[in-house]
Amino acid sequence: MSEGTMQRRAQRDQRDDQSVQRTGRLRAALAVAAVPVMLVAAGCSGDSGSGSDDGGSPAAGAGQTTSASSSAAPTVPPAAYKTLPKVCDVLSKKTLEELVPEAKAGKAGNTDDTSTRANCSWDSLKNNGVKGSQFRWLNVSLLRFESDIAGGAADQQAHAYYEKQVKGATSVQGAAQTRQEPLAGTGNEATSVRYDLKKKEGAFKQQTVVARVENVVVTVDYNGAGLAGDKTPDADDLTKAAQKAAKEAVASVTAANTGTGSGSAAKPSSGAPSPSASAAKS
């Protein structure tokens, strides 16, 4: 064998040894790398088994959460009053003859739902010949609220509207000599407001009584004037008349819902104060 041949064989043997060594190292590395993969697989298998060992507890927990959410859903108390009386019939014939003696019949306002909103008005013009004439105008409006999640309890909504009505009556543009006072024995809370208002026809004495009974707000507007030289009516007399009308209207609302007709005996609701702080005498 020549020296060259022996040298080439030695180089080939050396390369074979190196190849075997690299193959051994690669196999070792692959074996080491396979260990974490197997551990991860085993871990995942363990988690899966743990879930099944709970006997479906995750599903049971979800059911408990749903049940708790359902029981915790917000609620509001139902409205105490479910209907309104015929608004043009809330006042007695005697009261109408006193307040609007020349009125023929009440005129009901247009509304889509008379069980929640209604109003009726009367006007009277008594001609006294050369002395002039006496004018009277009366309006009764009823507004009933329903409980709902967005708005809250019906009596709370009615109380807020009641206060808004009182504020509006005491802030009429051009009004003079404005006075307000709480009115007892008229629903849960009531306020009487009066003021003078000059118009081109004459000097008017305006009376507004706002009352709340449960979830219904009653507003009575009553004014009078002496026209064509007739004397101006007495404000105290008009105030008493308007307050009387408000008491009757409240009683009619209560009677329509309870059959008692005793609106002045209605107990204050727990959800709204009685009388209102806004009813303090100014």
Rank of each mutant, 00 (worst) to 15 (best):
G226R: 11
K281M: 08
A280F: 06
G46S: 04
T254M: 12
G263C: 08
L39H: 10
S52K: 14
A42G: 14
A251P: 00
K231Y: 15
Y161V: 06
A190W: 01
D123S: 15
G43M: 03
K267N: 09
V216N: 03
A59K: 11
N188T: 04
G51L: 11
G224Y: 06
L96N: 05
G55E: 09
R136T: 08
G174H: 09
S57H: 13
E3H: 06
L39W: 06
A62P: 07
K107Q: 14
V172F: 09
D236R: 08
A184W: 01
D54N: 06
K200A: 13
A60P: 10
V140Q: 05
C120N: 08
W122Q: 09
G151F: 04
F135P: 09
E214F: 00
S264V: 00
Q134V: 04
A105N: 01
V20Q: 11
A272I: 02
Q177A: 10
M6K: 12
K205G: 07
Y222V: 01
D53S: 06
G224T: 06
S192N: 04
T111Q: 13
A153H: 14
V253Q: 15
P58Q: 11
A265P: 11
R27E: 04
S2L: 01
Q18T: 01
A249Q: 09
Q18F: 00
N127Y: 02
A249C: 09
Q165K: 11
A235T: 10
Q64T: 11
E102I: 00
S147I: 05
T239C: 02
L99Q: 12
C44K: 01
Q64I: 06
T254H: 14
A211I: 00
G263A: 10
D89V: 03
H159Y: 12
T75P: 02
A266K: 13
G261W: 01
A103Y: 07
L138M: 03
W137Q: 07
T116D: 10
A169I: 08
D148E: 13
E214W: 03
E181P: 00
K93F: 04
N110K: 13
V140G: 09
G263W: 05
V130P: 15
G56L: 00
V100G: 05
A242M: 15
P182K: 09
A265F: 02
G263D: 07
G174Q: 00
Q177R: 11
S282Y: 04
A265L: 10
D47A: 07
N215K: 03
T219P: 13
G24L: 08
A246K: 08
H159L: 02
Q14T: 07
A184I: 00
Q18M: 02
V140T: 11
K82Y: 07
C44V: 14
N127C: 01
V210W: 10
G61N: 13
A108F: 00
D13N: 03
V253C: 04
T23H: 15
A10V: 00
G271Q: 15
V166R: 12
K244A: 12
L99P: 15
P74F: 10
S2F: 10
